[in-house]
């Protein structure tokens, strides 16, 4: 059973507007998947389709085998949490714990259970110390971690991050990536990371590339980054390490394409020793 399953999904924002056509995409349970794409590639539309904020014109979307429809909408939203781009536009309450409680309150969770969920969610993102803080006074990365906690309070099985790191500084970006990786590894959470930073996709199990509403590439991050020229035609740059590998190979060395700096360092060392 797939965690997320898109079958021949068509969607358009009105006549002549942006459209997604014949999208087929599966995400397995427990997987960490990255969806890459430039502006207007349809990657954010994917997030909004996956938990029923947008409704497809044709095709079916299944979450853990349950087709998305009006009847199953709220059940599916409990399963699929979305963290959006702007940390300021997704917090409802002024105090951290009130905001984390919001989702759990919505689905009628009993009070004591909400308290436990707040403990769990803030613990998972490392923000316990800020439970009674004002959201407005937090840094961008902290606000976004609160947003992640707000989604976790619903106990979802899938978390979609829709460009959630795009507005953060490098430190905030790392904070979120650490939290997400930990959730995936330790809590077995299925994670879909939507981004245009190719660097962030390197740690994913699989990556998809979208362009103009179509799925154009899929595979492991290594497979995708080995075709740098194709990636460039979709307005995506290669990660730095891939650029270094290519430059070394063109310069006469023979290193294998890798996304791990440690492996690359070893290879270079080996080359240098053997070369001399």
């Amino acid at each position: 059973m797939h965690a997320i399953e898109f079958r021949d999904v068509d969607f358009s924002y009105g006549e002549g507007g942006f459209r997604i056509s014949k999208l087929n995409l599966d995400v397995e349970e427990g997987e960490f998947v990255a969806i890459l794409g430039h502006n207007g590639s349809g990657k954010s539309t994917f997030a909004r389709l996956a938990n029923g904020i947008l409704v497809p014109d044709r095709g079916t979307i299944r979450i853990f085998g349950v087709p998305l429809s009006d009847k199953t909408l709220y059940e599916i939203r409990k399963q699929v949490g979305v963290v959006f781009q702007n940390p300021d536009n997704q917090t409802v309450a002024s105090i951290v714990e009130d905001d984390v409680a919001f989702g759990a309150e919505n689905i009628g969770t009993p009070r004591e259970e909400i308290g436990r969920r707040i403990d769990f969610a803030l613990g998972a993102v490392g923000m316990q110390a800020y439970r009674h803080a004002t959201v407005q006074r937090l840094s961008g990365g902290q606000k976004q971690r609160v947003a992640v906690a707000g989604v976790l309070a619903l106990k979802p099985r899938v978390m979609i991050l829709d460009e959630s790191t795009a507005m953060l500084d490098p430190r905030g970006r790392k904070e979120i990536m650490d939290v997400v990786l930990r959730l995936n590894r330790e809590e077995k959470m299925t994670v879909v990371l939507i981004t245009h930073f190719v660097e962030e996709a390197m740690q994913a199990d699989r990556a998809f590339v979208m362009n103009r509403g179509e799925l154009v590439m899929q595979g492991t991050p290594r497979e995708i980054f080995s075709d740098g020229e194709r990636l460039l035609t979709f307005n995506l740059a290669l990660p730095r390490i891939s650029v270094i590998c290519q430059a070394l190979n063109e310069g006469g060395m023979s290193v294998t394409d890798t996304l791990d700096f440690n492996i690359l360092a070893d290879e270079i060392a080996k080359e240098l020793v053997c070369g001399s």
Partner: peptide, 8 residues
Amino acid sequence: DAMDSRCY
């Protein structure tokens, strides 16, 4: 959208 997706 954010409220919707948190089951409001």
